[in-house]
Each structure stands twice: as C-alpha cells, then as structure tokens.
C-alpha cells in the first residue's frame, strides 16, 4: 500500500514499531470493525480505532446524547446533546481522521438484524450495556465465527475478554445464563467513575488492533478484571465449556431465528 505524505506523518509512531511497520499499518487500513454501542465503551474504542486508521468502522446505537453521558462518553460533547449518538460520534471521528470510512447506524441491534449487519466485518466490539444484547452478540459472533472484543463495566470494576470462536471460550462458557433481571443493578445503583470505560475501552481497542495485526497474545482464553479502587488487574483463565449451548460439542443454539433475548433490563 502506498501511503500519502500525510498518512506517513499521521501513522509514523506505528510505522516505526517493529511489530507494525508499513505492512501492519496497511492491515489496519484494510480492517473493518463493527462497534455495538456509542456509549461509555464504544466511544473510546471508536476514538482509538479511528486514530489508528482502521479502514472501516461501523457503529450502531439508537440512543441520543444526554448531558449525563458526558462524564464518560468521550466522543460526544455539550454541543451534541440531543443528537443521535452515532451522528455525534461520526462528527468527532471524521474530524479526528478523514481516512476512516465511518458508518453510522441509528438503530437497535436485534436477533433479526445482527447477522446481516455484522456480515462483512472482520471483528465485532461489544460496547453494549445490558445482558440480553451481550448474549445476542456472543451467539451471533460464535455462529458466524467472528472475533469479538467483549467488555463490561460497573462502578469501579471492569472486565475484558476476547472471544475467538472455535479457539477459546465464548461469553456463554463464562456465564452460562443471563442473571435474572432482579439481580442486575438498577439504573440508580449503576454508577460508574467516568475514567473506567476509557481504560476498559482502551483495552478493547488494543485487543482489536492485535487481532488485526496478528501480534501478541489476546485475551482469548482468559478474562481480565480491573479493580480501579484497589488498582489491580487480575487475569483469570477461562476454559471452554464442552456443554456450552452455542460453542459446545452439541450446541442447542444453532441459529438466531426465533431466538428470544428479551428481558426486563434497565436501558441506558
């Protein structure tokens, strides 16, 4: 790939890394990443992947920017309150790096549309904020064999894992069933220190770039847990579950048709 003078300057700190170089940067430029959610996690993931020069980034979210988002959702601003989040993110990302083809999808991801939407993308990023969506994304990625950078945050704790279908565990191997709605923290219990999604989203973006480059070790057989109050990172081994409903030896979830991921969860 021939870089323009501007691209050579823009990506120079990548190019000089032995693990990346011009060839690695060309891989990044060809990559297509699908980010689910334009919130606390989606914003930093999209931000760093845009800065890194990922060729195509799609982002899906049907929500609008609110003042209460701005303490952590770094792609949005006071000026974009009231705008669809994906349009607000588009404005930020296009200003950051015009090389990137940004596809804004102002809709919800569902069992009906997910397979079609993520088809053609190399890697999926889960930046969703609720369990039904998390399982939905996991199942679709496993069925389609797509790498998934998954993460979750709450209060002062974050978790990151990378699912490489057929190689390591999936989200259902880790947490077999969705917790009942009553056990999930309600909106007023679910505070989060604003920096936390930046750290966790940054880790997700790093996982995505390493998958694209084929360098280093991703969290494909482990879960990384960050405790911001204690300032600790714990890496826990996660085995594959041979009885997993979607990636086990005898899966019972074999398509998204008629799947029910509903649940009475607090949104946003």
């Amino acid at each position: 790939m021939d870089f323009t003078e501007e691209q050579i300057l823009r990506y120079s700190r990548h190019i000089i890394l032995p693990e990346i170089g011009g060839k690695g940067q060309a891989k990044i430029a060809k990559a297509k990443v699908f980010i689910i959610g334009a919130g606390g996690l989606g914003c930093p993931v999209g931000f760093f992947l845009t800065a890194a020069g990922v060729g195509t980034i799609a982002m899906i979210d049907d929500d609008f920017v609110e003042l209460s988002n701005l303490q952590r959702q770094i792609a949005h601003s006071t000026r974009t309150i009231g705008m669809p989040k994906v349009d607000s993110a588009r404005a930020t990302f296009e200003a950051l790096n015009p090389d990137v083809d940004f596809i804004a999808l102002k809709q919800r991801i569902t069992a009906e549309n997910i397979m079609q939407l993520i088809d053609g993308y190399d890697i999926v990023v889960d930046g969703s904020d609720n369990f039904p969506t998390r399982y939905l994304i996991n199942d679709a990625c496993v069925l389609m064999g797509k790498p998934l950078a998954s993460a979750a945050i709450l209060r002062f704790e974050g978790q990151v894992t990378t699912i490489i279908p057929g190689v390591g565990h999936c989200y259902r191997c880790l947490f077999e069933e969705m917790p009942p709605a009553g056990l999930v923290p309600s909106c007023q219990e679910a505070g989060v220190l604003g920096v936390l999604p930046g750290i966790i989203g940054g880790l997700q973006a790093m996982e995505v770039l390493k998958i694209i480059l084929g360098k280093g070790d991703v969290l494909k057989e482990s879960l990384l847990i960050y405790d911001a109050l204690k300032t600790t990172f714990r890496k826990v081994k996660v085995p594959r579950n041979p009885d997993c409903k979607v990636c086990g030896k005898h899966p019972t979830i074999t398509s998204m048709d008629g799947a029910n991921y509903g649940g009475d969860y607090c949104q946003g």
Binding site: I8, S12, R13, I15, I16, G21, G22
Partner: peptide, 10 residues
Amino acid sequence: CPYTFVRSKL
C-alpha cells in the same frame, strides 16, 4: 527524526 527512519523503513 523520526521521519528519517520512517522513510527508510517504508
């Protein structure tokens, strides 16, 4: 630097 090396490396 670092464009001297960036160019050479590319």
